[in-house]
Structures are given as structure tokens and as C-alpha cells.
Amino acid sequence: MALRIRDLTLGYDRHPAVHHLDLDLAPGSLTAVVGPNGAGKSTLLKGLTGELAPLEGRIDRRVARLAYLPQLSEVDRSFPIAVGAFVAMGLWHRVGAFGRVSGKDAARVDEALAAVGLTGFDQRPISALSGGQVQRVMFARLLLQDAELILLDEPFTALDTKTAADLLAVVQRWHGEGRTVLAVLHDIEAVRRHFPETLLLAREKVAHGATDTVLTAENLFRARQMSEAFDDTANVCVRPATRGAA
């Protein structure tokens, strides 16, 4: 397993956003995470990156390197940096803080820019890019990160069809290279067409497995029943851990 999650609860102010989740991701799997707003999808990714500490449970990440595209990136788009230099940040695992960016590394940057359709943009300041171009830049950086596990939080939201198709092709390239990809998505039709596996989440796991068995009308209806609001008078959860179950 590339990722093994047992009885994971993540949340804010003691209120669970992801509740008692068990999940196994096989190496090389391409999984969509689907669920209503407030279902804990982004929270799950933050837990996997270590940004959010679990309230309970365990996450075993059996991969050397992880790359993460947040939903709301904290990129300062007014920062005076060129596209090429920005994308080259993805080489951090190779060059670190002090290493030299060699000619080979520069070629990698060019290759990544070409893969996302931004050839010739390397000298352009990031402040001059459109929203879709910024997302292409983020994907180019992810390409350079060369990670075994890639977490994407709503990577295709607010993109035109051409850009979304180009970046989806990048995701499929990762899948073909045997990388494990977990992507939060809202476009159910796109999930059915392009993602072999799906995790349907509504604070708790509704279903996980082959996409066509997960995205049934009944499962989607159950997911929509989830109450989004925190209950301020909720009691302490005493559910026994579901050890061993998958």
C-alpha cells in the first residue's frame, strides 16, 4: 500500500471534519475524492501532508516523496519572479537550498513548461499570468517535484475546457508512470470518465473502490444527507476504533 489510514479523525476545535476514516491506496492508483461541500475532502489532504495533526488515528505514508497542490494556494502573485524560476522551485528535492541548478535541471524546467503548454513563458513575470496559466505553472512545478504520491485539491475548478483537458492529460501521464494520485473533484462526469477509483466522503467514508460501484445514485444520496453544521452541544465521541477493517 502507498498509503494506509486507520481510524483517522481530523478536525477543528474538537469537531470532526473527517471522522473515523479507514483507507488504503494501492501504489499507482488514480483516485478521485468526491463529496459535498464540508465533507472533509480538503481536510483529508491537509492531514495527509502533515499540515493538520490527527485528532485520533494513524496515517502511514509509505512513499518517499509527496507533492501537494492546495485549493487556495498562498502564492503571492504580485511577487516579482519569472515563471521559469518559480517552476524551478519544484527541483528543491534535487538542489536544496544551496545546490546549483545545472544545465540538465534547466532542461527539465523547459520540458515541464512544454508539458503544460507554456513553452516560451519562462521569462514572463507570474503577475502577468491569467488564472488558468497560473494553474498550468503549478502543474509544471508538480511535474518537477517527481513525487510518488500526488495530492490535488480541486485542480480543474474555474478552468476552461482546453486547460482542464491539458492538465488532465498531465494527471494521466502520472498515472501511466505508476505514481499514486489522489484528486479532490466536483465534476462527477469527469470522474466517471477518467478516474478508475473513487472515494466518496461525507465526513465519514460513504464508499471507496471502483468508480462505477461507488458513484451509484444511492451512495450519492447518502452523501448528500450529511449535516454540514458542527453541533456545539455534541457529546464526546466514544466510538470504538475500527481496527483492521478496510
Binding site: E51, E74, V75, D76, F79, I81, M89, W92, R141, Q145
Partner: peptide, 15 residues
Amino acid sequence: LVLECADPRFLASVS
């Protein structure tokens, strides 16, 4: 330092 200015979350995720 440049990374911490331009994309602090990314720097925290890789180092």
C-alpha cells in the same frame, strides 16, 4: 528566503 516570500506553504511542504 525567496520561496518563503513567494510561496511559504510550498517551502514548508518541501523542507
